[in-house]
Computed example of a mutant assay.
Amino acid sequence: MRTSTNPELTAAWATVPDVAKAQGRHAEAVRLRRAFPSGVAPAQALTAVQDTAIATLTATGKWPANFAKDAAKAHAEAVVWEAEVVALRRAEDVLKYAAEDTRDSMAPDVLAHLGSRLDEILTAAKDASTALGDVTTADEAIDAGGDALNAWRRLTTLLGDLRNVRAAQWDVLRGVSGDDERAQMRTWIAQGHGEVRGIRLDDVPAHVRDAMRTQTYSIAQLVWVAHSEAGYVPTSFDELRATVEAATEPVTYDDLGPLRDYSPRITPIPTPPAPALTGAERTPELRY
């Protein structure tokens, strides 16, 4: 089973009852298999009895009268041992994959927990940063002492928590994604996506964007994200994709001005005027 030493990820898995139960059963299978006494396969057991009989014949010139009984007993015990050890190994494998499937199916719940942890970290970082004043380095914090030094120590601890949450976030998302999705995530991570939303990356300070791209976080980056209130943990690949698309949608401008109506215009044909009278008019002679 995929294991992790990340305390944030381990804690997130443990908060989901179905995951905790599945992992507990797998752990019990591992314990039983490791505690099971060592033994030999049936073929090896028979070979050992045969070797003993041959050695006796060689030394005394007599074949052991109880050979058949000893061989049957050794073989039967070995068959029982092998059956159970094989069953325990299979149980470990079955429960391993069952636990992994359960974890993957509950990934949204795990990611939601990580999102809650991120909110806690950022809230604490925002509160702690108010005591820093103009302090921006560890040396300055030591020189300032008092509240500033305590705040720096607190932020240092929170920075470690932030790193673990981000690592856990990508671990879970990779675990439930296909090859194409993982490749897409690598591209997005390299661009700095997946950590803030509601803001375009072009509007993120360069040092913060670089930290997100390389995942080498600093206290300055932690404080900026905490005050921006834009930090988040995507709960699925689809949510991540939607956030990336929203953050990279191009800005459009109307260079043509207001819309104009170019539909054809219909001009009515005017009624011709009546002819003017000249006085020379006469009635036509029909007899002609």
Rank of each mutant, 00 (worst) to 15 (best):
N6A: 05
E8R: 10
V16T: 07
K21G: 00
G24A: 08
G39H: 05
A41F: 07
A41G: 07
Q44E: 15
T47A: 15
A48C: 00
I54L: 15
A68K: 10
A72C: 02
A76S: 13
A76T: 10
W81C: 01
L88H: 05
L88Y: 04
Y97H: 12
A99K: 05
M106K: 15
M106I: 00
A107P: 09
A107Y: 08
V110K: 02
G115R: 03
E120L: 11
I121L: 07
A124H: 06
G133Q: 07
V135A: 03
V135E: 04
T136Y: 02
A138N: 09
D143E: 14
G145I: 01
G146Q: 08
D147H: 04
A148W: 03
N150P: 01
L155Y: 00
T157C: 00
T157D: 12
L158N: 01
G160H: 07
R163C: 04
V165L: 08
A168Y: 03
A168K: 01
W170I: 15
V172W: 08
V172F: 10
R174I: 07
D179C: 07
D180V: 11
E181A: 14
A183Q: 14
R186T: 15
V196I: 13
G198Q: 02
I199D: 01
D203F: 02
V204T: 01
P205V: 00
P205T: 00
V208F: 00
D210S: 06
T216C: 05
S218E: 07
A226E: 00
S228W: 04
Y232C: 05
P234Q: 11
T243E: 14
E245H: 12
E249P: 01
V251F: 06
D254C: 03
P258W: 02
T267I: 14
P268M: 08
P275S: 09
A276G: 09
E281V: 03
R282Q: 10
E285G: 03
